[in-house]
């Protein structure tokens, strides 16, 4: 009985390790993450994103300024 349980356990463990192996066989950028400086790429993308969003805020302000300018002009002409 003990032998059966241990052999069953062994089988399950083997299957588990096999499936784990099968999973890691799929090529992913694991190396990039450990020593490949992926964080540099993330930082660069974030700089671009931050830049574009800042630009969006600046445009927002510019449009507001133009609206105010036009409102002033409207008042002065009328």
């Amino acid at each position: 009985m003990k032998k059966l349980i241990s052999s069953l356990l062994g089988l399950i463990l083997m299957a588990l390790s096999l499936s784990a192996n099968a999973q890691t066989d799929v090529p992913m950028a694991d190396g990039l993450r450990s020593e490949g400086k992926i964080y540099v790429v993330v930082a660069i993308i974030l700089i671009v994103l931050a830049g574009l969003i800042t630009y969006l805020f600046l445009m927002d302000r510019k449009v507001k300024k133009l609206e105010d300018l036009l409102a002033d002009k409207n008042h002065s002409t009328k």
């Binding site: 799929v26 993330v42 993308i45």
Partner: peptide, 12 residues
């Protein structure tokens, strides 16, 4: 952008 690039995804 951080999570999308760094978090775990399924291995396919």
């Amino acid at each position: 952008h951080i999570g999308g690039l760094l978090m775990d995804v399924p291995r396919l």
